[in-house]
Simulated scan of single mutants.
Amino acid sequence: MIEQTKKILGINIHYQYYFEHSSKPSVILIHGFLSSSFSFRKLIPLLMNHFNIISIDLPPFGLTEKSPSFVHSYRNMSNVVIQLLEKLNIRRAIFIGHSMGGQIALYTAKYRPQLVDRLVLLCSSSYMKRARSSLTIGSRIPYFHIIIKRVLAKQGVLNNLRNVIYDHSLIDDEMINGYLQPFYDHNIFIALQRMIRDREGDLQEEELKKITIPSLLIWGENDKVVPVDVGKRLQKDLPCSKLITVKRTGHLLPEEKPDLVYTKIMDFVVK
């Protein structure tokens, strides 16, 4: 595994690259909101026997630079992914996106379809609008990031994990510390303040219907963050998609059911 950073769009982007042989197909892993490459740590060992893997920390998460000047829009995050793959000379890949990462994968499929061989969307964020105007206006207040920090601290990592995981017995110190680590850097809250006004919202129905890339949707039936009904709607709007739902599973699919996700991905890719 190669762990590196590259300067893209003016900031240092951190990524993990599991490369074995040029003949293997490439898989791009894109994590969700308030997460990082850490969320794929159980899935990567299963995939690495069959694929070259690039797992990206989207700005401002994980070990990627937390810049107040970077435009934290979905289009720009997609541009980060595209430009990183160009630097690594990867011309086509299978994209696996969890939650917000699924939306970034969809943006990439819209703007650079020739780069995306297949889409695997795990409880993908879908149909969310821009933040309400009162919140975007509030985000321009100089010290609004302190409010964000206090809100997230009040919620706490443990409570957030209990909200996104169905089986609470899976939550341990390693998991808590892994999701907490990026938030020791105060700059993440300043970047999140910027993200509130930069995020343009998810692709809507008319845009989704133009994406004809083969897509596999996997959803936890107990997802409280992006309910399974959203997955059913997304399956109708993506012309070449299939939806699989998983019982007794919440939002954090790569943590809860890595073996099942791996099996479904392999079934999808080999067809």
Score class of each variant (00 low, 15 high):
Q155N: 14
F38Y: 13
L161H: 06
L238T: 10
D202C: 14
E256W: 03
I13S: 01
K129Y: 06
R41A: 05
A131S: 15
L238S: 11
I2A: 05
M1W: 02
R140C: 02
M195R: 09
T136V: 08
V151P: 15
A109T: 06
V164D: 12
E174L: 00
E174R: 03
K110C: 01
L63M: 14
R197E: 08
V246D: 14
Q4L: 04
I146N: 13
L252P: 07
K242R: 09
E206R: 03
H14W: 14
P258C: 01
K6L: 02
R194H: 02
K154Y: 14
K24D: 11
L243V: 09
D223R: 09
V151M: 15
N160Y: 12
L88F: 01
S35W: 03
H251R: 13
I30H: 07
L43Y: 04
Q235A: 12
K66M: 03
K24R: 15
D172L: 00
I90T: 01
A105Q: 10
V80D: 04
S55H: 08
I11S: 02
S133F: 00
I265F: 00
K149R: 15
I147V: 15
P142Q: 12
K209N: 04
L84D: 09
M195N: 08
L119G: 14
Y107Q: 10
L115C: 07
D167I: 00
S55F: 06
H98G: 06
L85W: 06
S23T: 15
C123M: 05
L170F: 00
P60M: 02
D229I: 04
I11W: 01
L58P: 08
I104N: 11
L9D: 12
